[in-house]
């Protein structure tokens, strides 16, 4: 298992983040991802779901805001938020006990609902398995939201 020690103990952290992304990329390719593209500290993967559909997700590694840790942020687009009911529905989805949840992205026009999951990356932590797990949960939830709410794929 890849250890987060790489990120913290050695100078050139950015370079090591790319190492994590590389490791993630190879795991995803071996686990049946239909497309994986990695650049620096970001990775975009297209995954095939159990229902046969495909969904794209992005993994970004960023520095934590409140301490010495990093966060692997898994994001997958669900739908456009073109009415208040969708926002309310997304907030209700967040109350379900799931590792991922919905967020509203207003920087885009029109605003969209993304499904996100954040994995903590600490020194000596086993996080790769957790990122992969979160990634699959994110795309599954995004697909469900998309299918239930919008019935259309905007991604």
């Amino acid at each position: 298992m890849l250890q987060a020690t790489y990120l913290f103990s050695i100078p050139g952290m950015f370079q090591k983040m790319a190492t994590v992304i590389d490791a993630l990329r190879s795991v995803l390719l071996s686990s049946g991802a239909t497309g994986v593209d990695a650049v620096n500290n970001e990775l975009v993967a297209t995954l095939r779901l159990t229902n046969g559909r495909t969904q794209t997700a992005k993994v970004t590694i960023t520095r934590g805001q409140h301490g010495v840790y990093h966060v692997a942020r898994c994001v997958s687009r669900a739908c456009i938020a073109d009415n208040p009911q969708i926002v309310r529905h997304a907030l209700r989805i967040n109350s379900k006990y799931s590792c991922c949840g919905c967020v509203l992205v207003t920087s885009l026009k029109p605003p969209v609902i993304d499904v996100t999951a954040n994995v903590i990356i600490c020194p000596n932590g086993d996080f790769l398995e957790e990122i992969i797990s979160s990634l699959f949960q994110v795309v599954e939830l995004a697909d469900r939201v998309e299918a239930n709410v919008m019935k259309q794929d905007f991604f």
Partner: peptide, 24 residues
């Protein structure tokens, strides 16, 4: 929770390192 703040709450979820804002 007030209805007017639903979009703001969901948007703020994006800024969080951990957790989401939920409506319960």
């Amino acid at each position: 929770a007030s209805r007017e703040l639903f979009p703001a709450a969901l948007e703020m979820s994006q800024q969080l390192d951990f957790g989401h804002i939920a409506l319960v």
